[in-house]
Design a binder for these strands. Structure first.
Lengths: 338, 338
DNA sequence: CTGAAAGCGCTAACAA
DNA sequence: TTGTTAGCGCTTTCAG
């Protein structure tokens, strides 16, 4: 492999000139630049990442800690990942993939200066990783909210607002008894914060709007969904509106409702909280609150890069929920018909 | 951050001794080792990855080039990724995640010595990345087969054998007319090799076994699956056995068959080619040929590490298909009843 | 069994 | 606008 000295020699300049041509950190005359670039081209020169990292304390790599676990919806995770990877490239960074349960990996990559920054997904209320990143010298952005986000940078959909919006939508279109079919029990047990935040918004708005709300956890399997639907229909037969916050279970919930003779969009309104593509690939186009997973991944990278540029202030950014009406929701029993 | 010199000083030894304690590349007396380890512990010392890479030409990172694209089944992809990441950790390596379409990334990470080796997924018949990895100094293992695997290391399920096994299973249990519901059109258009290899095995065995075989590409959506099923039922009404090689479409195929009045496992035998967990999470436990995605990912890492250790010979490893009978397949019309 | 010291290839003062 | 050079923190000969 050619080194920077080879290039310098070939171009008849000093190594620092080559370095500065590459980094743009000081002005270079056009002819010099041209000669250097030609030499680089001719030799197929690539700066050695390790040498660069050693000299500059910059690796141009960010770590992404993503869950490869049960209970989470894999396609949605991948949307986050896609957002992170593509946006990182925009900043000329690559992505080192760590798994959730490899907590020691955090130490390894931060302590060993393998990365410039971190993005962590699937934050739990009392996440063991959070104290570690607080101690690390690399800036970190969490996708999700821990119990106490003090001094941390976080980004997520505003699930609490999403809960409110969903209930308000149903309430204002005349529904008086609604339900939530939520995350799988494992996710709840881990106190993954989005589930809890959604429920909080839901309940508050229910109180405000004067509607009843029943909550069912729901496994993502067909049978789990069937159980949830059956339970709801049995214990709360007056329900005319369902909010589904579980991408994996969504199709099965719709199937079960159909099997039980409920026509979604007519005698049962369903609002999903999920990525738009998921909402659109159901048997009926779903009224949904978008979970902009890829965007959130991108914002996470933007935030982490801002921190790298020197701006210190850690901030929490909650994206406002957007509800789009489609065919799965309609007026409820209490609707005022013109 | 503490450096190796700090540790050496604290332990009252030379830097090389610390280095050798860490690498184990030369014998160290017990007391010396103990002093060094205590110093490391006390200072919270972590070797600097860049410095190490520069001095040793080893990064302890492997690149994983994975598709983040349409047409592929995301959960299955993630099983491969999981296998790669976990096995890499067994070899004390981390994983840098590259995306398929970032072909320049290949150059960047190999030329820049960011990684020790590469694993590439989702290989197409005439994959543009293949010539590049052949030129790279880092060993590479492909998950999948290119047109010409000469001199390359590859690993995959033996899809051709899988095609044969599937047809043979149906033929020997009395089916005379079978069909394949295969990958989405996009995947076929890219000439992703597994799809073509499966079909080859299928057709050969069909000839040998004297059964007819009809092939339908199939979009992974509910409507795509419905169309495929409907087409099959209309154009080849004698079919009593279906092989499904499309994880995304599988549940919808089963739904459509049910809607069309076919009882899977009784008047229609279905054999799936998919990971076992997918086979087991359908409405009926599926007779299936396992796609051991996580294992394949692990084998890929094993192979790449072997190459790193110095053994040169590139090899292609095709895993033998294993068919497990479950409830979705039964005897066909030509079966000999005892 | 241990130390001394020469790089690995780059960046960023400092000098001109 | 360009060149010189001292490190960055580690590995690995070579010596002892």
């Amino acid at each position: 492999m050619a080194t920077i000295d080879d290039v310098a020699k070939a171009a008849g300049v000093s190594t620092s000139t080559v370095s500065y041509v590459l980094s743009g950190k000081r002005p270079i005359s056009a002819p010099t630049r041209a000669r250097v670039e030609r030499a680089i081209e001719k030799l197929g020169y690539r700066p050695h990442a390790g040498a660069r990292a050693l000299a500059s304390s910059r690796t141009n790599v960010i770590a992404l800690m993503a869950p490869l676990r049960v209970g989470v919806n894999v396609p949605v995770i991948m949307q986050f990942v896609t957002g992170v990877v593509t946006r990182a490239r925009d900043f000329d960074h690559d992505v080192l993939l760590l798994t959730q349960d490899d907590v020691s990996g955090l130490d390894r990559v931060t302590g060993g200066s393998m990365v410039d920054a971190l993005v962590m997904m699937d934050i739990e209320a009392d996440d063991p990783r959070v104290p570690l990143v607080a101690a690390a010298k690399q800036p970190t952005v969490l996708i999700g909210l821990p119990q106490d986000p003090e001094g941390l940078s976080c980004v997520d959909l505003d699930f609490e607002a999403a809960g409110r919006v969903a209930v308000r939508h149903l309430a204002t279109s005349g529904h008086t008894d609604v339900a939530l079919i939520g995350s799988p029990p494992e996710v709840l047990q881990r106190h993954t914060s989005y589930a809890e935040r959604l429920m909080r918004g839901l309940r508050n708005q229910a109180k405000t709007s004067g509607v009843t709300v029943k909550v069912e956890a729901c496994d993502s399997s067909p049978s789990g969904a069937a159980t949830a639907v059956d339970t709801l229909l049995a214990t709360a037969p007056d329900i005319t509106g369902i909010i589904v916050h579980n991408e994996g279970a969504l199709p099965h919930v719709l199937s079960r409702l159909a099997e039980r003779g409920r026509v979604v969009g007519t005698d049962m309104s369903v609002v999903a909280v999920c990525p738009t593509d998921v909402a659109l690939s159901q048997r009926i186009p779903m009224t949904s609150i978008d979970l902009p997973a890829e965007d959130i991944g991108k914002v996470a990278v933007d935030m982490v890069m801002t921190r790298l540029e020197g701006e210190h202030p850690s901030e929490t950014r909650l994206l406002a929920p957007v509800l789009t009406e489609r065919e799965s929701s309609a007026h409820g029993p209490a609707a005022v018909v013109d």
